[in-house]
Amino acid sequence: MAIIKIKNLRKVYKTHKREAGLFNAVKSLFVRHYETKHALKGISFEVQKGEIVGFIGPNGAGKSTTIKVISGVLFPTEGEVNVLGFTPWKDRVKYVENIGVVFGQKPQLVWDLPPIDSYHLNKDIYGIPEKVFNKRLNYMIKLLDIGDFIKTPARDLSLGERMKCKLVAAMLHNPKLVFLDEPTIGLDVIAKDKLRDFIKDTNKRYGTTFIITTHDMQDIERLCKRIIIINHGEIVYDGNLKHIKSKALSSKVLDVKLLESKDHFKLKGCRVLKVGKYGMKIKVDTNVTSIKKVMDYLVDNYDFADLTISDPPIEEIIKKIYEK
């Protein structure tokens, strides 16, 4: 069942621009140059219930704009959006009861109060029964390990602590649909792991649908089966993460540990990335040559102790797509 249906979504901004300098600043008091920016150029996609979708793209690609439109705080210029049966920006108050949103870069807790007070506020606003509230809160406190600081005013928390607390605030009412805009920004490795586990667990337990934008490819690899890549306001890829890997992958990386020091590795379709005294890293272009040929060449010419073949990191694949 598709819970998000988006058809031909367009968004045009009007912004004003001015050159640097005092004179231009004064001039802009009287004359303003407006510029139209096409943030979204007609994107369409659907999301099924229970999916975790990675929404990725370079800075300024239109990720946040899309999230804002679907969460009801931004009007599109054109297009149809249907989420859980609502047109988000028209029926805002009713609609937002069903969703949870975390903007990594914006404060969402009551700044002067400890997070626990924000949670109680949410309990009242969303009308969560006391029992359910306590159960969910305890579950999340345990899973995210935030028990130590939910009684400290939000302004005194660190970035990572606040992020985890924000996530809890957005999830207390058990929303069917959750948007996370850069949820792992500024988190350490352990915190990132906890957050990802939490997302996975919630998805499994409640069938919650997640849409996650991130620049951290580890998030994507750990969480998402499906990714949507957006660039310059257009969707450039929408599909399986594995599929894009095999499709975009025309190369493999070979890591060879040698028993003897030898140089001059030369073979068509291969590029030496790194070479040490007892090892080297080779990138193989599988369009030109095959792994077998490279292996044969290695066996014939080298005495090696170990060999690993791996895909280039996902970052490289994404970079390739961005640059297209």
């Binding site: 009551v110 109060l113 007070d117 109680h120 506020l121 009242d124 009308g127 005013p153």
Partner: peptide, 19 residues
């Protein structure tokens, strides 16, 4: 109504935070 009572309570707490 419960919504608004909750909001009043949080305003009250902020007032106390600025005692």
């Amino acid at each position: 109504m419960r919504k608004y009572v909750g909001i009043i309570k949080s305003g009250f707490k902020v007032a106390i935070a600025y005692r």
